[in-house]
Amino acid sequence: MQITEIKKIEDCFDGSVIFKYLFSEEMDEDLMNKIGEGNKLQYFPDFLRPFFKITTPADLQIKGILGDRDFEVIFPQTDKWKKKKEFETNLQKILQD
């Protein structure tokens, strides 16, 4: 599984930096659990299409739908670019496993 595109998303909230990550394959529970390791994982499997949200100790919020090929990440204002780089490095490792 690979990242095919990273898009910045504009919204009308507080200026948080939000990026959408697109993947070559559909996300499954295994990937969600790997990203959720060591983080706070909230999972709603009973929703019509299962929703998950992961909050990291660095205050990143990752949200997505299992079966989709993308998720969104909200990076907090402080050290956002550094945190984005770290997140992407970790994500690449998980995807390569």
Partner: peptide
């Protein structure tokens, strides 16, 4: 921030 996402993408 999540509600709109969940309503659209989940439901």
């Amino acid at each position: 921030k999540e509600v709109g996402y969940v309503l659209e993408r989940s439901f």
